[in-house]
């Protein structure tokens, strides 16, 4: 039995403890915002937060999150009416094309901004490695800077 918290809910999973966290989230918990894109930790579509840090869930056995706390894209915003500042920036810049990579991009960015609250382009190049097949990188870069601004302004108030 693996027990963990996901977006404020407590969960017990009694299936194969080797099941990647991604498939527990998608198939068993029916939270489908976290995506499968490669299954080998290359694309970042499956990024969630484990105890607040970004992690690729496709290569993490569910047993590894026993007792830990997970946030998925569905649990990022405090309320539906008020998206997280990173989501707001994504909306302002109208980033998504097909949209498939975007939950992972957003989850990666939220964690990244914790450690780089005023990132340079170089910081972004080094740390944001999620794939976007549609090529939304131009807007992602702008949205990351914009999110940093929104978050800095939010802290000031």
């Amino acid at each position: 039995m693996t027990s963990f918290k996901i977006n404020t809910e407590s969960v017990d999973f009694d299936g194969d403890p080797g099941t990647p966290l991604l498939w527990v989230i998608r198939d068993h918990l029916n939270l489908t915002g976290t995506k499968y894109g490669c299954g080998i930790g290359q694309c970042g579509s499956c990024i969630v937060h484990v105890d607040g840090r970004a992690a690729v869930s496709c290569v993490m056995p569910v047993s590894g999150v026993d007792g830990r706390s997970i946030t998925t894209i569905e649990g990022l915003a405090a309320t539906q009416a008020e998206p997280h500042p990173v989501q707001q920036a994504w909306l302002e810049l109208d980033v998504p094309q097909c949209g498939f990579c975007q939950p992972g991009q957003i989850m990666a960015t939220v964690d990244f901004l914790k450690r780089h609250p005023r990132p340079t382009d170089e910081d972004i190049d080094k740390n944001i490695t999620n794939l976007c097949r549609c090529g939304t990188y131009v807007r992602i870069r702008k949205a990351i800077h914009r999110a940093a601004e929104l978050m800095a302004a939010g802290e000031g108030t």
């Binding site: 939270l31 489908t32 915002g33 976290t34 998925t72 894209i73 569905e74 990022l76 915003a77 539906q80 998206p83 989501q87 994504w90 909306l91 109208d94 980033v95 998504p96 949209g99 975007q102 939950p103 957003i106």
Partner: peptide
């Protein structure tokens, strides 16, 4: 877009 960035 809102649905896309919130995973819905």
């Amino acid at each position: 877009a809102l649905d896309m960035v919130t995973g819905r």
